[in-house]
Design a protein around this nucleic acid. Structure first.
Lengths: 243, 243
DNA sequence: AAGTGGTCTAGACCACCAA
DNA sequence: TGGTGGTCTAGACCACTTC
């Protein structure tokens, strides 16, 4: 029997507010709700979807936290014009994000291998003999590398992963098997190594952001560890603090 | 007449959930609610405060976003053990934050001057002839400088500011005059200049975080612009993304 | 003045956690 | 199994923005 069966797709039904949020998201993508314009009012949406205003407010809060909407008191909820600036409040993966950009995007897998590594095993809280996929990807936007990602996934958890899959959306694939609960991220500034300098066309005097990320399922199982290097010419970290 | 009268203390009453949140905050500080332990349940709190559970949930969500509480599904809401790691989800000022630390903290003002500066005027969207306070402060924790802050405030907005005030809490003072709505922050990695290197006891090979922050009142008036340099030996940026 | 989001009430059922 | 947080209903009044 597959050892991770218990953690696949928790029995928790998808809440209505998330279903609605995803629907609104789709409409934003399709330009049914154009950028910079007002959404229907919360009262209208609640009528349209046949739910209470509280539920709609939940959907909207979710989309605000995702960085897709913006609230204006007394005026309405607005579709945010998306920028390429990476916002720490947002939890959009690269492929999701680039749907909202007009520029062409793609992902290139430049390394794909099975490894044993005691350091990685330790991070996953597993025995040393476990095998991992190590996948190094370059994310392009308009023919420029915007970030470099190294992902570690446990082989037995995602046995049929492939280069083709990883050149599409990692999370689309991963979410067929598990439900993501949260990820723990840490960001530090580093001096890029030679490889990274070459890829980003920068020198050693240009510090860059380096992010590590530990992904957890709803059952609190670690399903991925990843490292990200950001192109300083493209990304900046901006965020809004309320109150 | 004072020119900013209209924006002082908007008529909006402080909502109940915020009053309750501040009360809970106080209890956490006084160790009435010890770190790492469970808060009373939402139902008990709603009874205690004589409000509905929805209102309590609002208070708790606010404290979670401030980084003071942590939710555990099916178990309860817990007081987070605070660390010195700067969390991007948190909006705690230094003096607030250091209350939760056992170490001794203080703020030293090392520059305090009135300036005219066209660049700063531009940032505030004001005429060039406006005068600003430029205040450079060092924040100490256990006799170590944890960050360097340069704050710009419009003189006519905060006429009676002083070194003494700035060695206490900036926001405590500022909030006597205005109500803070939000701040726009941007963080980039930089190579520290000589001054900063000396203060932090680091060399030019150690990149650091540099944050700029633009503070807005509830009337969307810019009330401060500040620059922050973080000591890399103490701070790291970590955050949790949900779903 | 009309419409909007912000807050709040008083309930309810569910899945999850610990005992 | 009992208590917890997560979600949801069906209302209500408020301050704020827009006209």
């Amino acid at each position: 029997l597959f050892p991770y069966t218990t953690l696949f797709r928790s029995k928790m039904k998808k809440p209505i507010y998330l279903t609605i949020a995803n629907d609104i998201e789709k409409k934003i993508f399709n330009n049914d709700y154009p950028k910079n314009e007002r959404l229907p009012s919360e009262r209208n949406l609640s009528e349209e979807y046949g739910v209470t205003r509280m539920t709609i407010r939940n959907s909207i809060e979710y989309l605000v936290s995702k960085g897709l909407l913006e609230k204006r008191l007394g005026s309405g909820n607005y579709v945010k014009r998306t920028s390429l600036n990476l916002n720490l409040n947002e939890q959009l993966s690269f492929s999701e994000k680039s749907q909202f950009s007009d520029k062409s995007s793609r992902t290139e897998v430049i390394e794909f291998e099975k490894i044993y590594n005691s350091k990685i095993s330790k991070i996953f809280n597993l025995d040393k003999d476990k095998e991992f996929f190590k996948i190094k990807r370059l994310r392009y936007l308009d023919e420029e590398v915007v970030n470099i990602e190294i992902t570690y996934l446990l082989c037995e958890m995602f046995p049929d992963i492939s280069i083709e899959i990883m050149e599409k959306s990692k999370y689309d694939y991963v979410e067929n098997f598990i439900t993501i609960k949260e990820s723990f991220n840490k960001i530090i500034p580093i001096i890029p190594d030679m490889d990274t300098q070459k890829i980003f066309h920068i020198d050693s005097n240009t510090p860059i952001f380096y992010k590590t990320s530990l992904g957890l399922t709803t059952k609190n199982i670690i399903f991925e560890y990843s490292e990200l290097y950001f192109n300083p010419k493209i990304y900046e970290f901006s965020f809004i603090s309320k109150r």
